[in-house]
Design a protein around this nucleic acid. Sequence first.
DNA 1: CACACCCTACTTTTT
DNA 2: GTAGGGTGTG
Length: 750
Amino acid sequence: MPPSSTASAPDLLAGLNPAQRAAVTHHAGPLLVLAGAGSGKTRVVTHRIALRLREGLPGHHVLALTFTNKAAAEMRARVDALTGGASTSPNVGTFHATSARLLRQWAPRIGRGANFTIYDDDDQIAAIKRVLKAQGVGEKSVKPSEVREAFDRAKNEGRLPEAGDLPPTLLAAGGAGVADAYEAELLRSNALDFGDLILRVAQLLEREPELAAQLRRRWPVVLVDEFQDTNPAQMRWLRALSPPETCPDLTVVGDDDQAIYGWRGADVRNMLAFEQTWAGASVVRLEQNYRSTAHILAAANAVVAHNTERLGKTLFTDAGDGHRVEVEAFESPRDEARWVAGRVRTLCRDEALGPGDFAVLLRTASLSLDLEEAFRAAGVPAVQVRGRSFYDRAEVRDAVAWLRLAVNPHDDVAFQRAIGAPSRGVGETSLEALSKAAAEAQLSLYSRALMPPASIKAKARGALATFSSLLDEHRALAASQTPLSQVSQTVLAPLLEAMRAQALATRDRSEELAQRVENVERLVVAIREFSREQPDAPLDAWLERVKLVSDADAVPEGTAVSMLTVHAAKGLEFPVCFVIGFEEGTFPHARALRDGEVGLDEERRLAYVAMTRARQRLTLSWCRERRTFTETRHCTPSRFIGEVPTEHIEARVEPEPSRAVARPFGGLRGRSERSTRRSSDADLYADPVYEDDTGGDSPWRVGMWVWHGDLGRGRVVGVSRGVRTTLQVEFDGVGRRSVIASWVSPYDAP
DNA sequence: CACACCCTACTTTTT
DNA sequence: GTAGGGTGTG
């Protein structure tokens, strides 16, 4: 951009603090930005890119790697806004998406076609099951998911899996060949799994210096976001692209306290060792937090300070003290959920907040069950942030399998799925025979189906032939200039037709079947929308996007309370946050505690991430009892609650129309689990602070209006107190019903 | 070979 | 409480 235009462009350094300014203006050469939560990290990265572009660097020489597609889109938009679109756009994407793009160019070098399929976890498991069967290893001797994790681990560490990576039970069952067979299966299927995407790029760049040199010329400037979550394979990728000995223009940004993907192979030590690996690197610390008020920040800092092995960094804020952190205890998750919903209503009424200002953060996705119910009952709009779930439905996966085959007919996982949806006379027996013959000939199912073995019956052979020629038609269509929406409609027509016929033929369950048809129709609509956004994009591009979406990509902008896992919430902020399920065994999670200190430290960082999402208000809650599918567990509060100094905790909140128990928690600090349990047991019967339905303080009164999620509005005509309060309610248009009190919420009289 | 039904095992986080 | 596997029947 010519200097003359700089005058009208925004001043890229205005409003930055000294540390941010140092990071933005740092000259070429490796730079590590240690960016605490809410310290303006994205601002620094985008301004740094914008400054380089303004200095005349063409955008296409910049590569910025992010963790999620949403983060990539945001970064792209912000850079464009800063530069006014005057330069070419920088290349912004996730490691996986960027790798996939590179590999499509380089596909022949790894024995793939440019139209290779990306196998996600479920595809991997399907492939592993096929392999286990082909190798004659019963699925009983090993869980396919365990094998998948072993393969994943190896690839994240930077190598192809070998027999030594397999679970001992599998080796004992004679499954040593499974690793090689799995790789052969991927090769035949013209497929790569998630781990491959990163690993193959790393390997190619290391083995073919001219490729690496070419890439370095293309991307002399590299930035990496969320660096603390990179795994060893990604580090090799990065080292090849920005070799330490060349003193590359490499900027990595991250926060070791927010490293929460260790279970996926990420290694914080990459960050701790950055200064050694890229010798001579500069380090800038961003420690001023612009997000949270002081009590919230101090509470979060205090929790994470219990970890050792930190780069060390203490956040501060200029914002006022704000509200203290609320700690709430409940008898059951249902009470907890009802209280959260009620509190959202109260705050919306009293504090000029809308539902979109709230988030409920969950350690595990399943904790949302009671919440959904409670928000519905309270009439508060709330959505669970789940980007993938739609694509995980069986019928949607069936449809996607058909689309995949239109691009890559050798995709065995899709082949196996599509051939049974709708069923067409090729059952288990035939498929197994075909599988065996395919593996022997080193061919995909599709290729082998073109010359079916004699072991398959004539009827099934005919069905296979019909199926194959259908795939050929689809492939020709997808390769032609036909618009994407028409391609998808044609490809999915046989499936949709069969599903509609089935829905009509079935009397009961027709609702459910109709819903499935609708889901597939929605998929067609989604494809149409995609092709409107990107008119020239082929079906491959859509499939790739679908594969690489994550939960975090689907965070709604808006008008509803967000319920989301802490992992999905990383990088986001909300004025008001509730972290629920803060119990030993849930958060920290029991499975993580099994891994000892390492697991606990990561759980603590997760707690830190959760707490630092809040701008103004933060509530931590726990339940004395939590039921899993089989058992009811008596719970003690999370040790992380005890790690928050008392002075940052709100001892008690105003009474709410629920069975909430508000009480101070500072006293729990340092107590043994045993004494904690005793004190909560005692609370059940004696603690005067505790109020439940058996006490005289019930919020329910005859004559008051209530709202029920299913039955609508009604007026209380009777209250019976027992183990749980039951209300007799006269519902509008429904009549008199007896309902459990925790299912309804108070409702302002019309 | 396809479908209906019953049983069991399951919930950590996800590019 | 449900998804996916296993079993039995048409």
